[in-house]
Design a binder for these strands. Structure first.
Lengths: 150, 150
DNA sequence: GAGTTGTGGTTGCGTTTTGCAACTGGTTGC
DNA sequence: GCAACCAGTTGCAAAACGCAACCACAACTC
């Protein structure tokens, strides 16, 4: 069908072409829920992503307009990654995935109680709570620009 | 952390270990929205999944309890795949992904108008509509058992 | 100002997964 | 009997992944 590199124009497929792998959503999870912004921080997570894979995914996310990369003024060699509106809009998906998993995947029971409580709260809070969480992300990642729209 | 084969017990991670690839959710999409139930039917989709990959994914979905496989009484060599409750519960995730994609991925604009209308409807219908769609899937995939719970 | 630590990566290489095409063994309809 | 249909399997090349070592540079320590 598509001859511009896409397997099809189905929205599900287009999404999978972007984050249909074992790592991309974990990076976004860390940005959203652990407030990670620097390269080294992403390496600390339990899943132990490799540096080359992380570099590749961050590059891809920037290319897709889901994340931006900026120099950190406090440290000339530090890069800061921020979510864009497109990236923040992925929050409901990640929350839904978390909810499904903690409900249906047996191994999720092994997660510590505190983390499960966060999941449950986000789930029970429903769309209204997601909206607030997204607003908070806008504050942190888009800064003043988000408060004074054109 | 985990030494039972899991990279971590984070629900997001556990989900990605199951369907974090380019194909699995497409198979489920076809089951949910195109009512595909037979091996050959899945091969017809635009994305042209290969037979070995499809066989592998169906096997995995059965192992995970997301899908069941049964012999088709009308044809000794036909297999029928059905969603379980665990599989049906993935509908909100798929809908959210579709909504995000059609909103933020430029190429999704190339999808034909009719399909986009379906997406929009499911999105605007909100959780209430998802519940109805899921009930319909229970009817088709779980049959009488779903109407007369233990 | 020398040494240690912290920064975002890159490179090389072996293993695993994916994608493609051809093929298999059995069933059904005519 | 024979063509079409069914759910896969097999073999092989290409791509992605995972690991570990390495790099250039900045900043902090003393």
């Amino acid at each position: 069908m598509a001859d511009d590199g896409h397997r099809s124009y189905c929205p599900i497929n287009l999404s999978l072409e972007i984050f249909g792998d074992r790592w991309t959503l974990l990076v976004l999870r860390d940005m959203m829920f652990a407030n990670k912004r620097h390269f080294r921080e992403f390496l600390q997570s339990d899943e132990l992503i490799a540096t080359n894979v992380l570099a590749d995914r961050l590059k891809l996310l920037v290319e897709q307009g889901i994340v931006t990369r900026a120099d950190d003024p406090t440290h000339k060699q530090k890069a800061v990654y921020s979510l864009t509106e497109k990236g923040i809009a992925l929050l409901p998906i990640i929350v839904q995935i978390g909810a499904w998993s903690s409900r249906y995947v047996p191994a999720a029971k092994k997660l510590d109680r505190r983390a499960r409580a966060v999941i449950r709260e986000l789930q029970e809070g429903g769309p209204a709570l997601w909206t607030r969480a997204m607003a908070e992300l806008r504050e942190r990642h888009l800064g003043a620009a988000a408060r004074t729209p054109a």
